[in-house]
Design a protein around this nucleic acid. Structure first.
Lengths: 214, 214
DNA sequence: CTCAATAAAGAACGGTCATTCGGTTTTTCG
DNA sequence: CGAAAAACCGAATGACCGTTCTTTATTGAG
C-alpha cells in the first residue's frame, strides 16, 4: 500500500498516508511473519502455500497482499530473520566478559543456538538450513546470507585477535582463517542437532578440545 | 516396470523380464539422474520441473516415468547420491596411510569436498545442502541422511580411537564426541565455500590448529 | 520374417496455487 | 455525524506442472 498522489483542497497533489497507526501496521506485519514462520518450519518454503499462511495469520488474502507484494517477499523476511539470529549473541557476549577465549566464545555460540532453537514461536534453526539451500538459487537471499555471515565472522575475528594479543592463540595464523574455522563449527553443530539429534554444546566443545592436542 | 506374471506355454505363471538388457536400463536410469542433477544444481529440487528433466535427459515423459514412479523418487535418488559422496573418501583413506591423525583425516576430507565439488557433472555439494533442507520435512531423505552421516561419523570415530591409542589424542574424551566435532567441521567448510567463496582446506585447518592452543 | 510384448513418445488432463479485483467494512478527520 | 479513503475480505482466475494414457516404434524369440 504505497502512498498515492491525490488532489487536495488546495489543488496540490500530496502523498496520502495510511489511516491506521504505524504500530498497527507493524503488528500486522509481525503477525503475518509469525504465521509464515510456523508454516515454513513445518513444511518448508516451497510446500508452504499462501492459503496456509493466510489461514494461520487469521487475515485474508487481500490483507496479506497489502503487507507483502508476493510470497517471495515473505520468504525473504523469514530467511533474513533466521540468518540474523546467530549474531544476536555477540552484542551481549563481547560487551560483558573481558578475557574471552575463542573456544569460550564458540561454546557460548553453540549454547545460543540451542536456546534460539527452543524459543517459543518455533525452531528458527530449521529456517536457517532452508535459507542456506535457498540462497543457492535466490540472489536476494544469497546477498542477505553473505552479509549476515560476514558480520558473524567479523565478530569471531575480533575474538581471535584478542586471543592472539593475550598469547592464548598462535599469532602467526591469519585471524581471518581462525574466524572461518570458528564460525564453521556452528553450522556443523546445528545440522547434527537437527539431523542426528545427539549433540550438546558441552560435549561437542570437549570433543573439539581433545583434537587440539594432535 | 516391474516384471509381471504371465501364463507361458506350460500353463505356469513366470516373471517376464524386460526386453532390453539390464545394462541398457541402468544407463537410461543414470541418464535421467544426471539430467535431474544438472537441473537441481541450477534450480533446486522444487523449482526443477519434470518437463525440464525430461527435456534435459533427451527422453520422453513416458520413458522417464518408466524408470521412476514420481518426481519424488528422482529427488530421493539424487539426494542419496549427494549424501553418499562424503563417505567415498574413507575407503581409500583408511586403507592406505597407517598413522592417521584426526586433523590429517579432516584435511583430507576437506580436500575431498573440494574435489567432488569440481567434478564434471556439477557441484554435488549444492545438492547436499538441499538434501539437508529437504530432510527436515521428508522422512525418506531424513532416514538416508541419518544413515549416511552415522556411517561417516563412525569413520571419524575410528580415527579418533586410533589417535587415542597413539597418544596423540586425549584418551579421557569420548571418541564419539570427537567424531561429532570432526564431522561437524565439514558442513561448515562446505557451506562457507558455497556462500562466502573464500575458504580453502589448507588455511581452514591452519585456522583450526591455531585454536587448539587456547 | 513375423509376431507379441516391451519401450518410448508426447499430447492431453486434472489439480493446485499465487495473485487479483470488485465489493464491504472500518477508520479518520472536518 | 457524514464523507472519503484506507483496510480488509474472499471468491474468481489463469498459469503452471506432475502424471497418465493412447499411440507408435523397437526389440527379441521362434
Amino acid at each position: 500500500m504505497a502512498p498515492r498522489l491525490v488532489k487536495n483542497g488546495h489543488s496540490f497533489y500530496v502523498p496520502v498516508m495510511p489511516k491506521v497507526t504505524e504500530e498497527h501496521r507493524a503488528a500486522r506485519r509481525a503477525q503475518i511473519v509469525a504465521a509464515a514462520r510456523r508454516c515454513v518450519i513445518e513444511q518448508g518454503f516451497h510446500k508452504t502455500t499462501m492459503a496456509e499462511v493466510i489461514r494461520e495469520s487469521g487475515l485474508s488474502a487481500g490483507a496479506v497482499y497489502g503487507y507483502f507484494k508476493s510470497k517471495e517477499q515473505i520468504v525473504e523476511a523469514i530467511a533474513e530473520e533466521a540468518l540474523s539470529t546467530v549474531d544476536e549473541l555477540f552484542g551481549k557476549l563481547l560487551a560483558s566478559e573481558e578475557p574471552l577465549s575463542p573456544l569460550a566464545a564458540l561454546e557460548a555460540a553453540l549454547n545460543h543456538v540451542v536456546s534460539i532453537a527452543e524459543r517459543p514461536g518455533g525452531d528458527v534453526t530449521r529456517v536457517a538450513i532452508q535459507a542456506w539451500s535457498e540462497a543457492l538459487r535466490n540472489p536476494a537471499i544469497m546477498t542477505i546470507a553473505q552479509g549476515k555471515y560476514a558480520q558473524v565472522r567479523g565478530r569471531f575475528e575480533d575474538v581471535a585477535r584478542r586471543g592472539q594479543a593475550d598469547g592464548t592463540v598462535d599469532p602467526s595464523v591469519d585471524p581471518r582463517h581462525i574466524a572461518q574455522a570458528l564460525f564453521g563449527i556452528v553450522p556443523g553443530f546445528l545440522l547434527q542437532r537437527l539431523i542426528m539429534g545427539d549433540v550438546a554444546p558441552g560435549t561437542y566443545t570437549a570433543g573439539l578440545r581433545a583434537l587440539l592436542r594432535s
